[in-house]
Structures are given as C-alpha cells and as structure tokens.
Design a protein around this nucleic acid. Structure first.
Length: 494
RNA sequence: CGCGGGGUGGAGCAGUCCGGUCAGCUCGUGUGGCUCAUAACCACAAGGUCGCAGGUUCAAAUCCUGCCCCCGCAACCA
C-alpha cells in the first residue's frame, strides 16, 4: 500500500476552565484514527491545542491579578496533561498565543481582505457569553442574561465582517457532493437545513476597547480579531501555513473531529474562510455526540462531572479507552454511569479478554512448557472491522474484535484442549493435535492484539509480548484485575 | 405545523432504505456443563401487543396516513 500523508485535527478547547470528558473524547477519537492509519503505514499528523484569547481569559486573569499570558501559561498545561493521559499520539500542539500562529492569522486576514468589510454593529452584548443577542432574545430575558446574571449591554460599534454569504453555494455543493463530507448523515441534514437561507456574514473583529486580549487586525490598530477567525485558523497555522511549505502536504485535513455543538462553525465559517483564502476544504467532519451521566447532561452546577483522569488512575488507560470507544457510539450521544463502566471493565475486559489471555497462556505453559507450536494461520474475515474503521464507526469495529474474543472462547470449549492433553501418551496424535490447537489460539490472540492497536495500545503490546517470541512467559499477574469501586463485589464474604 | 433524532423482552442496542429467510445481539436473571482460566468460560431456558390507531398486502418492526411520548438543535453551560 502506498504511504499517504494524512492529517487529523481536534477542536481546541478554551483554556478558561478545566478539561472535561468531552475534550478527552475528542482526543480519543482522533487518536484511534491516527493509530489505525499509522498502523496501516501512513504518515499521520495529528493536531491538538488550546484556544487562549478572548475577554473571558482577560477577565479571569485580571481577577487573579496576573497578565492574560501568564494565566494561559498556567492553564494550558491542564489540557496538555489530559492529552498525554488519554494516550493521544498527537504530533502537533498549538496554542493560539504562539507567535507563529499570531503572525499567520494576520497574514490570513490580509489574504481574506477582499471578503472583509467594515460595518456598524448594534446590539445587546453579554460579556459572559462573549456574544451578541437579538432584541427579541433580550426582551424575553428581561434584559438580564440568565446564565450570567448580568444585564446585557447595548453596544454600537464598528466591526469587520467576513462575507460568508459569498460562499453559501460553494459550501452547500461541497457538502452535497461529498467534497466535504459531514458524518454522520443526520448532522449533514441538520446543517444543510440550518443554512437553507444562506450563510450569514459574521463579525470577525471588535474595537480594542471592548476586546483587548486577542490578535490585532493588521493595519487597524483599533480592532482586535474575534475568536472564531483566530481559533479556526489553528488547523492550518499549526501545519506551518503560510511560510513552511510542508503544510501543503497535509492540507486539506482528512478528518476533523468536532463535537456536535461546534458543527456550525466548522461547516460554515471555517469553509468560508478557506474558500476566501483559496484553500481546499477539509475532506470529512466527524461530528461526535455528548456524554451524559446517569441520563443527565453534564453540568458543573449539578456536580455530575466525570473526571477522565480519575477513571484512568483507578482503572488504567486502556479501560478508559475501551469504554469510551465501545460503549460510546462514535456518532451519537451516550450515557456514562459508573455501574456500566465497571461492568464493562470487569466482564468484558476482565472476563472475556483478560481471562482468555490467561487460559491460553496457562495451557501453553502447562502442557508445552511454554513453547508455542506451528499452526496454519487461519485469517479471520476482517472486512467488517475495516469497513467500520473506514466509515469512522469505531464502536462497531471494536464490537467486531469482541466477536473474535467470544469465538475463541467458544472454540476452546469446543475442542477441550485439557481433554486432548489427557490423551498424550495414549493417543499418538494427541500431542500434535494439542500443539496445533494451542498454536491456533495464540495466533488468534495475536491477531486480536493487532486489531486492538488503535484502541488499547497497552493491551495490544502486552498480548504481543506474551506470544510474539514463540515462547510464553509465565504470566505476571493478569490483565484487568477485578475492581469493585462502584459496584458490589459479588464474591465478597457475606 | 421551526429543524433533527428516537420509541423493539428488566437495561443498552441491531434490524426499517430493498416487506417474507426476523423477532436478533450484548448485559442482567435462571438451569445445566466444564475445570485450561481472573469464582472464570461454554450451553440451554424464561422474558417482547417491535409507542398507539387505522390503511395497503397473501404477508408489516419494515410501506402509507394520523396521533402520543422522549431527546437534541434553534438558544457557543460541551
């Protein structure tokens, strides 16, 4: 297969806050794809980063009595830690305060000049949202933002606007003909519906007096760029745009991973920016859903947040990756409960896979002094797995791996190696037969290990280490030991 | 009539495009088997008016009509 240069991106979180499970999901999905493509011999660039400009950052920094940059310097680390924690094999990390990014965005602005115009913006502004609201909305809320408990300010100011409306037709066509695919299909429909009256022009700057912490507009010292232009550009500036020509090897992105809440920006404003700058559109937008906890939306005020770090520290990295790749459907919303999580951990990882590895290792050790015999390699049909991976339905792909795990457990019970072992010494063919059976088991586990590389890298390595050399080492403990932190231990003494 | 998704055994889902081979899968529950293994694994069983009501058809979870309910978006708490 020809090695291709591929590029996958994740949304960059706003550093005003702590990382949450949704960020972790972004990194995980992108990572699964990146590892899968790398395994298939492609060269992958995988971008992550942090969004660090805006009034909320400035306000928070002022509250703490430090400079905005000092504040983001201490905040971005939390996100970087999370990426490492979930095992993200990212190749590029960007902060929107990076000098290169700042300069590149200013360059991009100039390229976009023909599609930028200045206009008066008049409306109601909420500092908490960093957004404008219509007269009607403000009336309904009686002039006070319910989320932030602050009155809306009436503002009349000069802003620069990006003429997204120039590109409505091109974008619609690209979405419809698959030049820029939106996965899943229902999100595509949702978005097309949203823009049926055309894309609205968007404000892309604000006067410095209203927005101090951001990238200055070139040639207009009084204006600062508004968040989206700054943040969205990261996907190309991180590649080196415009000065490092290598960016052209990786743009357009093959997959952009985003949450359903930001589809409109990534399918509307961002493509308009790209088209305006004469750049290609990304090939696919992978839109994932949200994670609910105990059936309810995650909310800090309700206090039902799930800390990905806690999950990983208690159960291990692969347990985390397993649950969020298999039990969280890639394209839809999902529910997390500790009970579901722990059941999946104990039953599926422990009993199905971990125990399978134990029983096979044990038999090879016990019956053959650890030596794995020769076996005709029977290739399991993997088309379902690969189809699912290619259509970005990772949960279905890993389901397929579990079908193999189950089949292998069934196989062992059918052929009963322990019975065959009893025949050694009596039946002249027993030894060869047993060797063949166990070699088949080891081979199947190795194959399972290969398929798990994108999902459970640690486990895949462990399986490989166990069988790869042809000699099984005595097991050093077990994979996925039982844990009963959130569910009752069924074997506990009464 | 704003837009979208969904309602299938106790739970979570597949199947719906192309009607029959469909009522399926995983978990849970029960019974049995086995002993290589993490009190695991394997087999079998119980359990469903496929949201409701009409219609089309020899035949509907699947197609048509109407209705009810849940969720999401619109409305950057992700």
């Amino acid at each position: 297969m020809e090695a291709k240069k591929l590029y996958i991106t994740t949304a960059i979180p706003y550093v005003n806050g702590t990382p949450h499970i949704g960020n972790a999901l972004d990194y995980l999905l992108a990572d699964i794809w990146a590892r899968y493509q790398t395994q298939n011999g492609h060269q992958v660039r995988y971008q992550v980063g942090t969004d660090e400009h805006g009034n909320k950052i400035a306000a928070k920094a002022a509250e703490l009595g430090i400079a905005p940059q000092a504040y983001t310097d201490q905040q971005y680390v939390h996100f970087k830690n999370l990426m490492e924690k979930v095992g993200a094999s990212s190749t590029d990390f960007i902060r929107t305060t990076d000098a290169h990014h700042v300069a590149s965005v200013q360059y991009l602005w100039q390229v976009l000049q023909p599609h930028i115009y200045k206009d008066i913006y008049e409306g109601w502004y909420c500092i908490g949202h960093e957004a404008f609201f219509t007269d009607k909305e403000v009336q309904e809320m009686a002039g006070v933002c319910p989320d932030h408990q602050k009155p809306f300010e009436h503002v009349k100011e000069e802003n620069y606007f990006l003429r997204c409306s120039d590109f409505t037709e091109q974008i619609r066509t690209a979405i419809n003909d698959g030049t820029m695919e939106i996965y899943p299909d229902f999100r595509k429909k949702e978005f097309l519906e949203l823009i049926k009256d055309g894309l609205a022009d968007v404000s892309i700057s604000r006067p410095r007096k209203s927005l101090s912490w951001g990238i200055p507009v070139p040639n207009d010292p009084d204006q600062i760029m508004y968040v989206w232009l700054d943040a969205l550009s990261n996907y190309i500036t991180v590649l080196g745009y415009p000065d490092n020509p290598d960016w052209q090897n990786y743009w357009p992105a093959d997959v952009m991973v985003i949450g359903k809440d930001i589809l409109r920006f990534h399918a509307g404003i961002w493509p308009a920016m790209l088209l305006g700058a004469g750049l290609a559109l990304p090939k696919k937008l992978l839109v994932h859903g949200f994670i609910n906890v105990d059936g309810a939306k995650i909310s800090k005020s309700v206090g039902n947040t799930i800390d990905p770090v806690e999950v990983i520290d208690n159960y291990g990295l692969d347990a985390f990756r397993y649950y969020f790749s298999r039990h969280v459907p890639t394209l839809e919303d999902a529910d997390f409960t500790w009970e579901k999580f722990e059941n999946a951990y104990n039953n599926e990882l422990g009993n199905d896979l971990g125990n399978l590895l134990s029983r096979v290792s044990s038999m090879i050790t016990k019956y053959q002094a650890g030596v794995i015999g020769e076996s005709a390699q029977t290739e399991h049909d993997m088309s379902q797995y690969h189809d699912s991976m290619n259509s970005l339905q990772f949960n279905r792909a890993i389901d397929e791996v579990w079908n193999m795990v189950r089949s292998l457990n069934q196989y062992i019970d059918n052929v009963k190696p322990w019975e065959v072992a009893k025949g050694i010494g009596k039946d002249p063919e027993a030894e060869a037969h047993l060797s063949e059976i166990l070699a088949h088991c080891a081979g199947a586990l190795l194959q399972i290990g290969d398929l798990l590389v994108p999902f459970l890298p640690t486990t895949a390595t462990a399986i490989h280490a166990q069988f790869d050399s042809g000699v099984v080492k005595p097991l050093d403990g077990v994979l996925f030991p039982k844990k009963y932190i959130h569910t009752p231990d069924p074997h506990a003494a009464k």
